[in-house]
Simulated assay, not measured.
Amino acid sequence: MATLQHLLRWSSPLRAVASRCIHTQPTTTAAALELIRSQPSNYVVASFVGKKYILTPRDVLTVPHLKDVQVGDVLKLDEIHELGSREYTLRGSPTIPASKVQVEATVVEHTKGSMEIKFKKKRRKGYQKTIKHKHPFTRLRIGDIVIDPAASSPSPAESS
């Protein structure tokens, strides 16, 4: 019987801690955006060149070569599927509108990958061929994640 009391004594403080850790659920999208903005670190899940990437500020993203951009150009990521922080997540259906979240990426460099070697051969024909190739890539630096830019910047009527 002493072991049962011992177990109950140690389990009761754990239940008390678990009851204190309940988060409040936001009721509107604006409230959810405000909660995510108040968190110290944010991330987005964005589609770029047909693939989804998890991105945080100051990440370097390597994508297949983009032909029409130069080093230093700023690209706007407009297909954002998910926005979140450590404790909260907001998912779009299928995307979050560009008016709510803005993410920019700066072209850092155009580069090539490692050497890939293909060897082709046909038996008993004397045919051998070696093909060497490097895939071209573009590297992007992700900028800051601006959540609901209309609410964060005061309008001229409010400042007067």
Rank of each mutant, 00 (worst) to 15 (best):
D144A: 13
I145W: 08
V74F: 01
L83W: 05
Q5C: 01
W10Q: 13
V74L: 11
K122F: 01
E109I: 08
G72E: 02
V74N: 00
I145H: 07
L66C: 12
A32C: 13
S93G: 13
K52V: 11
M1H: 06
K76A: 14
V17S: 06
R20W: 03
P97V: 00
D144L: 05
K120N: 11
Q70H: 13
V60G: 03
L75E: 01
P26I: 06
L90F: 14
T29A: 03
I145L: 14
I36G: 02
T3V: 12
K120P: 00
I22W: 04
V101P: 03
K129L: 14
V69R: 15
R58W: 02
I96C: 05
Y88F: 15
D78I: 01
S93A: 13
L7V: 11
V63F: 03
A105Y: 08
I36Q: 00
V44F: 02
L8A: 08
A16M: 07
E104S: 08
T106G: 02
T89W: 01
A105W: 07
L55D: 03
D73N: 15
V44R: 01
A105F: 06
V45S: 01
V107T: 11
E79S: 13
R15L: 15
E34F: 04
T89Q: 13
S85W: 04
H110W: 09
R91T: 12
I36V: 14
I54M: 10
R58T: 12
S160G: 12
Y127G: 04
H135N: 12
L90K: 06
I142F: 10
A16Y: 11
P136E: 09
L61V: 10
H23K: 09
E116Y: 01
I147R: 08
T56G: 13
L33T: 01
L90C: 12
A2R: 10
K52Y: 10
L75Y: 02
H65A: 13
K120A: 08
Y127R: 09
S160L: 10
L33C: 12
D78K: 10
K100M: 07
T56Q: 15
K121M: 06
P154V: 08
A150P: 04
P156T: 07
F48C: 02
E82P: 00
V63A: 03
S38E: 09
L75K: 02
R141T: 10
D59E: 09
S12W: 03
F137T: 03
D148A: 14
S19D: 15
V108K: 15
T62R: 14
I54E: 10
K118F: 09
A98I: 00
S47D: 04
S159Q: 14
D148E: 05
T95V: 14
N42I: 04
D144Y: 00
K52W: 01
I54L: 14
T95S: 13
I36E: 00
S19P: 02
S11H: 06
V45I: 15
S41N: 06
K112V: 15
K76R: 08
P40E: 09
F48N: 00
D73R: 05
A31G: 07
P136V: 03
D73A: 13
V146E: 07
R20Q: 15
L55A: 11
A32S: 13
H110Q: 12
